[in-house]
Amino acid sequence: MFRGRFAPSPTGPLHFGSLVAAVASYLDARSCGGEWIVRMEDLDPPREQPGAADSILRTLETYGLEWDGPVLYQSRRSEFYEAALAKLVSLESLYPCACTRKEIADSALPGIEGPVYPGTCRHGLGGREMRAWRVRTNQQEIAFEDAVQGPQSQILERDIGDFILKRADGLYAYQLAVVIDDAEQGITHVVRGADLLDSTPRQIYLQQLLSLPHPMYAHIPLAVNAQGEKLSKQTLAAPLKGDSPGRALWLALDFLQQQPPQELAGANLGDLWPWALANWRLRNIPKARALPAPTL
């Protein structure tokens, strides 16, 4: 069974960039007769906005995006993440770390997403207090074929370093939770924004360590503002409006280069969704990390 998913973080209302990701994952699943799951990635309470999760679900309904089964909330799944950590400890793939961010920044080499952890605590804490759990990486190449962006590869020890799975504040890392939940929900295809492309080798590595299945991945271009910034709460992206969902959906299809006909630009959802499902082509999505967002 083909199963896709949309997994927003409830840090604020959905914006155009969120809609693009939701539409792409929805159409990829539905056009194949598959299921589409919604998951709330509410792992980081300090960043969350009260009421945002409910607002996101209402907006999806307003735009005609119907999901299968109950919504999964990561904040209620700590026992599963803890069990995965215990398994990694038993495999000697996880170790405690006492380093602060400043210590890492002062001693690390640059990597693709910032300082690469130099392995300071790999062989013990030296009497210091534990702050986090890190997974041990190696020089094995992690390679995969992205359905939009093409061939990808990383050597984690060189490019990322040993990465954190449980933080000093006791919160579980996104990399761990997403791997556990994709496996739990039987996700076969992951369609999401290109900002997560560089995270995928870490997730594949964890899947290998935990003997979990490896979904197919497709990373679509991010919608960015006039300054080239990803649309987000931090960049003051405008929330989606509920009064003209047809226009926003047409713009999302156009952004994904699905070539919706101009005569449908003002159409209602009842006319747009059948056309979108019949004409969805993942191969049409441009091989780009980011594209300018249209004016809604």
Rank of each mutant, 00 (worst) to 15 (best):
L240M: 08
L156T: 01
G193E: 05
F255R: 09
L264H: 06
G127A: 13
G246L: 06
D243K: 07
T100N: 14
I37T: 01
L256C: 03
L65A: 09
P274T: 02
A278L: 07
E66L: 08
P151D: 07
P50F: 03
A183E: 06
L264K: 02
V38Q: 00
D182A: 12
Q203I: 08
G33M: 09
E79T: 15
R122K: 14
I56Q: 15
F2I: 03
V179D: 12
R128Q: 11
A238R: 15
L291M: 13
C32G: 15
K166H: 12
P118F: 05
T137Y: 09
L196A: 15
V116D: 01
T188I: 06
V20W: 00
P239H: 07
C121H: 10
F2D: 00
P151Q: 13
L240G: 10
A183W: 10
C121G: 03
D181A: 12
L209K: 13
A267Q: 04
P8H: 08
L269G: 06
F163A: 02
R30N: 06
A278I: 14
G150S: 13
A24R: 03
H219E: 06
D181S: 08
W36K: 00
D198H: 00
S211Y: 11
D159C: 13
A278C: 07
I112G: 05
I204W: 14
R76T: 11
R77F: 09
V116M: 05
Y205N: 04
L165R: 07
A22S: 08
G124S: 05
G270Q: 09
G242V: 09
H214Y: 06
S31K: 11
E141Y: 11
G114W: 13
F144C: 06
A98L: 09
D162I: 10
P261D: 00
A108F: 03
R58L: 08
E113Y: 03
A83M: 08
Y205A: 12
R76P: 02
W36F: 15
